[in-house]
Amino acid sequence: MAAVAATSLAFLTVACGGEEEAAGGDVAPVAVSQEDLTKLPDATTYGDLPNAAKDSGGESTGKVLHPKKDLVVYNEVGGEPIAKLPTTQVGSPTWVPVIAEKGEWAEILLPTRPNAASGWIHTGTDEVEAAQNDFVVNINRDDFKLEITENGESIGSWTIGTGKKEYPTPKGRAYIIASIEETVNDYSPIVLPLSFHSDSHETFGGGPGTVGIHTWPDDSFVGKETSDGCIRVTKEALDELVKLPLGTIVNIV
């Protein structure tokens, strides 16, 4: 009944507003009490949302969003809350890519397990900051190639290293979740963790098996499968990758 009521309300609003884009897009988010908010798991690289919807495959909008406070993530437009998206990820400000929009709702990719977890957030509030990101990273594991595009045009391409046969680099549509000046591991000055996780390492070191992009002390990795799932890049490539906004899509095929 609640869903029916919400839908009716949406139609009314659309009729009054006149120019709303997608039917259903004006559905108000389900109210979440303080107690319910406390129960919701945090969407970070340490989280696991086994029931989250998978990446719907929508074409990336080029938009990235930053929550200014913990933001509730829903399983669908007007649906059930499944998580809360914190303002930071491993110390960096949270930015998530938008892969579909319906009115004031945005489908975003999440940094949690399982890979390609997605959810919907209500953007009709000033608690969400939006920005435009024209960059995309394309990775071809078979060819050991990493390419950066800007507005669809290639602006650089490099040969990379990927995961060993037993610890393959997972494929799919990931994104850069943070820019880390790594203080403990010394193989790379900057590490760019992705939203994806290893399918074969449930944990790795003290971490949750997060796949990252980083360089390596020597070039032995170039064109080879030598990592535990991470994407190893040359210094030259890393110098360009660190300039990409957080939330930049990384397509891995």
């Binding site: 960096s92 900051e129 990101n133 193989y187 971490g207 991470c230």
Partner: peptide, 30 residues
């Protein structure tokens, strides 16, 4: 200490900011 990237005072959104690397530790899958 904060995110000071794109200011989106209207319907026009700004360009997504170049990130500032933050001192942190995360064991990624090397």
């Amino acid at each position: 200490g904060g995110n000071d990237g794109g200011d989106n005072g209207g319907s026009q959104v700004g360009a997504a900011p170049v990130p500032t690397p933050v001192k942190a530790h995360l064991d990624v899958t090397g």
